[in-house]
Amino acid sequence: MSIDPQRKSYTPPVLEFKSSTFFVPVLILYSHDVHLIEQSLHEKISQAPDFFKNSPLIFDVQGLNKENNEFDVAALIEILRKIGLFPIGIRGGNEQQNDQAQALFIPVDAVRSNESVETQESAAANIEPEPETTESPPKADMAVAAPIAVPTPTTIPTTLISHPIRSGQRIYAAGDLIVMSPVSAGAEIMAEGNIHVYNTLRGRALAGVQGNKKSRIFCSDLQAELISIAGDYKTSEDLNDNVRKKPVQIYLQDRALIIKDIA
């Protein structure tokens, strides 16, 4: 084996297979109503058209199948493509759905990690009250299996912006958002994670827009029109003078928006 790469160096290889990890959004479906799905997709996408434009996507029907609802995978794929997304995989489908997807050249995700975690967890929940000692070794196994699967909640890269965000512009970050330049009044910055503004924040800043209550907003000069974390917001009017024009952090505590000096 050790000689092999040396040999290869004499004749440059034509191709190579490598393993690589990608971040791909997963669309988790809770409704089997195709029209409803289409409608809410349109709504979501209109919030951040650039972000979703030509985005690859894996759709997850695991939840649907638990409820044993009939679901037309072909119709969903058609909707996704029509809307400008590229479905590249199905997850958690039953045999019929997987066949349907494969017929449309959509690969089937093995789901090992996720499915196993879910099933094992539910199994563990069932098992635990039982006092049988023979069950404990597999339990230990599960404990090992779970941490391996934990990283799968995709870590989305941070978005960095260094040009001024002008009035009327909107920025949407799927992860954290860092802005080095001023955010003008009338501009809107949104992030599913935290927002950092190392400059004056005059526009609207919305962190945790998908409901992450642990997200925070940091800025070095707070003059915002509106700040929001996971839907809880304050407008400029509600900011009192000891935080205005100061470097602050903003976080959520018991559904109350706390604005505090960083220093």
């Binding site: 040009h163 001024p164 965000i165 002008r166 009035s167 009327g168 512009q169 003008s184 009044a185 009338g186 501009a187």
Partner: peptide, 13 residues
């Protein structure tokens, strides 16, 4: 000033 800012945004995009 606000309108100019908006214009600058359009210019840059």
């Amino acid at each position: 000033v606000r309108d100019s800012d908006r214009m600058l945004g359009i210019l840059s995009s």
